[in-house]
Design a protein around this nucleic acid. Structure first.
Lengths: 355, 355
DNA sequence: CTTGTCACCGAAAGCGCTTTCGGAATAGCG
DNA sequence: CGCTATTCCGAAAGCGCTTTCGGTGACAAG
């Protein structure tokens, strides 16, 4: 079971170590004959190069890191698992390694990243959930170190990213609600240092404008990105003298909280008050009522992120790697025509479930 | 910004490289005076040893791997994120690295693991979701390579693991249902190659026995570990001539499917039919109705796994590291007294919500 | 003053690979 | 057949660290 080293292999073949190395690495100055011989012996003896030694000699890390988002929101982020899986797939093609690194705290975030970059342990980094202006991105951009972001910061012009166009998703959501007759649409959101929150808020505003509705600051409420947060924010909105008839939520988790708030108000979500979420989390369909949402396609985002990062490490221009995907509405039971007392009005505006 | 190497530092100090190295690594044969000098110079120049070179020289990987479970179930496993975070915390104390590796397919699982172990990239492995008899564990056990398992295989005597006692959790769940008057308790489960499924089924059986109830094979239904799976299995159970009055589900995801099945049958979950899940996933409280479940304490499982693995790598005996935690019932609205037509019976047996 | 004993450090040999450089053998050319 | 151009491989120098080994100087003991 003892590992066979390059030296062993060379001795076994009666050639120099360098020759074996070059043969295995497809150098042009090795004859086909010996290359074949070396290859044969290599997998006969089960030779596997020592990655550490290789890394030291070449100076290449053959690994990338996923930089964990600091969990400001208590919700454990289930998307991480999928993302890692995709990244792993992408890296597997070169048999590179995937490191997971996380800062001890939000304050040490930058320091951790700096250390990581200068450690030489990895040749690229992927970041998640950028802040509106994100120190990590600034640092990486300046340093010239290869990286890619899952999401976008406010200024996303000159680096690589993969994102879902949540802004236009929210525009469509507003359109949809307006088409159902809603005039007072609330936005339950979160602090906007996370850029995706800002994006969605922008979409909300644009949507209102496009439909000739005024933007009323008292219709947007801010809370944590949790179910309780969504519930609280929604409850506040609904407690106003002239409450909204529909709630657009920054994500599904909050939307599910919103449903609870509506019920707590003695109203029926999907009837008296519509709610639309964003994300397309699995649980949405089991909410009460099943949640209408803007679902983001994130099946292969990890894979795509990985491929892009590899291309950048290979020398590609980061600006050439910016992908924006569209979300898609999956309509369930939490939205409906604006509520009026006369029941016949409801028959005018249809509802359907497609999934 | 150029990295300063040990050589640079040595030259700067006018001493030999070896001296610097030993000083920094607290060798006893270095005087306090020069040790201090070296340390000072080191962090003045911002010296950070090159981990790759260090690994090569010492032969120690200073890293462990989390071996991803192959996703047989489509549900992305949200616990992975938490677990990685905990592992990362544990490793951070030594500033070791955390690798995530995944096999390309279930078939290549063993081969991937074998390669990982022999690559020298890591000095320990953590596994998740063992099968009843798990080839990965057998291999690792034989090889003597340090590892720890999140969960247990059937025979868990001679290796390290961290698990939740789901068997006794299911016993308690049965007890609970019996106390509510249920006599026909269904088990909605999954194929038992995953050992935790077997454990829970065992708990179910033991619970029945303890309560003097017969084990009826037609009351257990097997399906995938998804919501649809749970729904299908539950629907089948409820379609029997003499259907169960309560459903015990192997996990919360299936339980949520069970709720849907009950509603599809025109019945009210928590009233006509009780259901209890297992896991304590966050979404349970927003199910319709809120799900009663056996919640497992997994807050720091990653951390504990990491610490244990490190101890084993340090030479500890794996058998000394076996931790079994207890799950705890969190009662919500999906369970209740067995349904009978006379309403007064229900008042006898109480219900409450504590969370 | 000599010898032995430590405390301390320099020198050097790796760790297992890559990669440059130069030289021997062969081929191509007139 | 002599000379240059190729082809192919061996030798050796790293990569940046660790660790053993041996040696120097100081100091105590005799």
């Amino acid at each position: 079971m003892a590992r066979v080293s390059l030296k062993d292999l060379a001795r076994h073949l009666g050639v120099a170590e360098g020759t074996v190395s070059r043969a295995l690495n497809n150098y042009p100055d090795i004859s086909e004959a010996t290359r074949a011989k070396v290859r044969a012996a290599a997998d006969e003896l089960g030779y596997r190069p020592n990655p550490t030694a290789r890394r030291l000699a070449t100076g290449k890390a053959e690994a990338v890191a996923y930089f964990m988002p600091t969990s400001r929101s208590a919700i454990s982020t289930p998307f991480v698992s999928q993302l890692l899986q995709g990244l792993g797939d992408a890296l597997a093609k070169r048999s590179w390694d995937l490191l997971v690194v996380q800062p001890n705290s939000a304050e040490e975030e930058l320091e951790t990243l700096r250390k990581l970059v200068s450690s030489g342990k990895v040749s690229g980094v992927v970041l998640s959930r950028p802040a509106k202006v994100d120190a990590r991105i600034d640092f990486l951009r300046k340093s010239g170190f290869p990286f890619i972001v899952h999401g976008r910061a406010k200024d996303a012009s000159d680096y690589a990213w993969f994102d879902i166009d949540s802004e236009s998703a929210f525009v469509s959501a507003v359109d949809h609600l307006c088409a159902l007759g809603h005039q007072r649409i609330g936005f339950v959101g979160a602090p906007t240092y996370q850029n995706f929150v800002q994006d969605r808020l922008n979409g909300y505003k644009k949507g209102l404008q496009a439909n000739g509705l005024p933007y009323a600051p008292d219709l947007v409420s801010v809370a944590e990105l949790t179910d309780e947060g969504g519930e609280r924010a929604s409850f506040d909105l609904l407690s106003q003298p002239n409450p909204p008839t529909a709630l657009l939520c920054v994500n599904d988790v909050q939307a599910i909280g919103a449903l609870a708030a509506i019920r707590a108000k003695g109203l029926t979500p999907g009837k008296e008050v519509s709610v639309i979420g964003y994300d397309g989390i699995w649980m949405g369909r089991h909410a009460n009522p099943p949640l209408t949402t803007m679902a983001q396609p994130q099946a292969h985002s990890g894979r795509e992120l990985g491929d892009m990062l590899l291309s950048i490490i290979d020398g590609g221009n980061p600006k050439d790697f910016q992908i924006l995907r569209q979300a898609e509405m999956v309509r369930r039971k939490s939205d409906g025509p604006v509520w009026v007392e006369q029941p016949h009005v409801q028959k005018i505006l249809g509802r359907n479930e497609h999934e």
